[in-house]
Design a protein around this nucleic acid. Structure first.
Length: 270
DNA sequence: AACAATACCTGGCAGC
DNA sequence: TGCTGCCAGGTATTGT
C-alpha cells in the first residue's frame, strides 16, 4: 500500500471524479474493514456534495457540504477503483455520483478503515491526535528530528516507521530514504548527527516527491485510481533487491525485525 | 515510558 | 494441477 505517495496519488486521482459532485448513492457491501463502517455512513453521505479532497499522513479525506469528512485508510491492500465495469468480491464501499461516475473501495486484506467525523472535529480524530509532522511540510527538519529522537535507543528504522515521529512513511520509503542518506537502518536513533539528519530529511522529501511524480508505486496490490499501474517500484534502489549489487560494490542485504523486512547495503550505509 | 513482538485477514507465488 | 509454506505496503494491542 499505500504509503504517503500512493495515498496522495489516490486522492489526486479521485479529486476530478468527486469534487463538486453530488452523491447519488453510497453503499457498503459488507459491514466492516479493520473496524465497522459507521452506522450512518450511507445516510450522511447520500445526497451530499463533495467540496474537497485531501490527505493527512496515510489517510485520505473527503469533505462534504454537510460539514462531514470521510476519512479512509487503505491499509495494506486498499485501492479505489474508478468506474469499474463490474464490482468485485472485495469492493466493500461503492459511491455513485449524480453525473454517473462510480468509485469502489477495494481492500482484500481488510486492514483499511472508513470513518466519518464532523470536519470541525478532525483534529480530535483518535488516529490524528498524536501524528507527527508531514514530511513534505515545513515542520520536518533535521533539528526537529534531533529533538524528537533525543534519548531514543531504538533504531532509526523503527523511529521513522513511528507515525508520531513523522507521519506518512512506511516500510518501503523508509528503506529507500535511509539508503539515499547513507544511514544504517540499525543505527541508534539518538546517535545520528544533526548534519546527517538534515541530509535524511532532504532524502525523505526527494524519495516521496519522486514517487508522487511517478504516480505512486505499485507492488502487488496498488493500482492508481484511473486504473493504470504505478511504476515507481521499478526505481527502488534497495527495497526488494536482496542479493543484488549496490553501486558502491557492496550487496543489498535483508534482515527482519518485528516481522518487517529491511533492505540495506551494509557497505555504504553506516 | 519505551521497546519488541504479535495479531488482524486474504491472496499471490515459489517450491515440491 | 494441487498442496504447503512463506511473504506482503498497514495499525493496534499486549507483554516485558
Amino acid at each position: 500500500m499505500p504509503e504517503l505517495p500512493e495515498v496522495e496519488t489516490t486522492v489526486r486521482g479521485l479529486t476530478p471524479v468527486l469534487q463538486g459532485e453530488r452523491l447519488k448513492s453510497v453503499v457498503t457491501r459488507r459491514g466492516d474493514l479493520r473496524r465497522p463502517f459507521p452506522d450512518d455512513l450511507a445516510q450522511r453521505m447520500t445526497g451530499a456534495t463533495i467540496t474537497a479532497l485531501g490527505r493527512r499522513a496515510k489517510y485520505g479525506l473527503i469533505d462534504t457540504d454537510r460539514g462531514d469528512t470521510m476519512i479512509f485508510h487503505l491499509g495494506m491492500s486498499g485501492r479505489w477503483r474508478v468506474d469499474p465495469t463490474e464490482l468485485e468480491k472485495h469492493d466493500h464501499l461503492v459511491i455513485e455520483t449524480d453525473s454517473g461516475r462510480r468509485v469502489a473501495l477495494s481492500d482484500p486484506r481488510r486492514f483499511g478503515s472508513v470513518d466519518l467525523v464532523p470536519t470541525a472535529e478532525l483534529a480530535a480524530f483518535p488516529a490524528f491526535k498524536a501524528l507527527g509532522p508531514e514530511p513534505l511540510g515545513p515542520d520536518l527538519t533535521g533539528a526537529y528530528l534531533k529533538q524528537a529522537l533525543k534519548g531514543r535507543v531504538a533504531s532509526i528504522k523503527q523511529m521513522l516507521l513511528d507515525q508520531r515521529i513523522v507521519a506518512g512513511l512506511g516500510n518501503i520509503y523508509v528503506c529507500e530514504a535511509l539508503y539515499a542518506a547513507r544511514i544504517s537502518p540499525k543505527r541508534e536513533a539518538s546517535r545520528i548527527s544533526l548534519a546527517k539528519l538534515d541530509r535524511l530529511v532532504t532524502e525523505i522529501r526527494a524519495v516521496l516527491e519522486s514517487a508522487i511524480a511517478a504516480g505512486g508505486s505499485s507492488l502487488r496490490n496498488f493500482v492508481h485510481p484511473d486504473g493504470n499501474l504505478g511504476y515507481f517500484s521499478k526505481e527502488f534502489l534497495v527495497y526488494g533487491r536482496e542479493g543484488e549489487p549496490c553501486g558502491c560494490g557492496g550487496t543489498v542485504k535483508r534482515y527482519v525485525e518485528g516481522g518487517r523486512s529491511t533492505f540495506w547495503c551494509p557497505k555504504c550505509q553506516s
